[in-house]
Amino acid sequence: MNIDQRIKAELEQESAEIDRILGEDKGITSMMANSMKGNLGRWFLIANLFVLIFTGAMITVGYQFFTADETGEQVFWGILLVLSLQMQIGLKQWLWQEMSRSSLLREIKRMELALARMSEGKST
């Protein structure tokens, strides 16, 4: 077997392994589940709980804003609506970053394992 055939076989094998790895990813639900298993899993659950609380608050405050009769009341409820929206945005941003971090760490570990396997294969 010449070097070109060997390189081609290695690339095909790596391509098949990458296809298998990409096929394992189930989507956003698996990313969320994996984030809950990590070191910050409790914080992830707490942040999700607060997202639900602020969603309820945002709906309630939005209803109060649109049904208020006086301008002063509308300003009050409007400010609370904006604050609850900002809290939601901040918490969801953190959740997405945590999911991304968890996914990235998993991919780095996969690469470390692949490199370890390659170095073992060359040493034998």
Rank of each mutant, 00 (worst) to 15 (best):
S119H: 07
E107D: 11
L81Y: 06
R110C: 03
W96Q: 09
F65L: 14
S15L: 12
M1E: 06
Y63A: 01
L45H: 13
F44P: 01
L115C: 04
N39T: 07
L80K: 06
G90H: 07
R106G: 03
Y63H: 10
L83F: 02
M32T: 14
A33N: 13
V61Y: 13
A116R: 02
K122G: 09
A114S: 05
K26Q: 13
G121C: 02
L105A: 05
G23T: 00
I89A: 11
F66T: 04
T124W: 09
E107H: 13
S123M: 05
I108G: 01
E120Y: 00
E107F: 13
M58N: 12
I28G: 07
Q13V: 09
A33E: 14
I21W: 02
G62C: 11
I3F: 04
T60W: 13
D19R: 13
G56E: 06
M36V: 15
G78V: 09
M58W: 06
S100D: 14
A116E: 05
Q64T: 11
E17D: 12
D4C: 01
L81W: 08
M32E: 15
K92Y: 10
F65W: 09
L40D: 14
I21L: 06
E14D: 01
F66I: 08
E10Y: 07
F50V: 08
S15W: 04
G56Q: 01
F65E: 07
G72M: 04
L45A: 14
F66V: 00
M99D: 01
A116P: 02
Q93W: 08
Q13Y: 10
L80G: 01
R101E: 03
N34G: 08
I18Q: 12
G72N: 08
N2T: 06
E12L: 05
I79L: 15
L22F: 11
K37E: 13
L104R: 05
N48H: 11
D19E: 15
E107G: 06
R110D: 00
M31F: 04
T67I: 12
K109F: 08
G56R: 05
I79V: 15
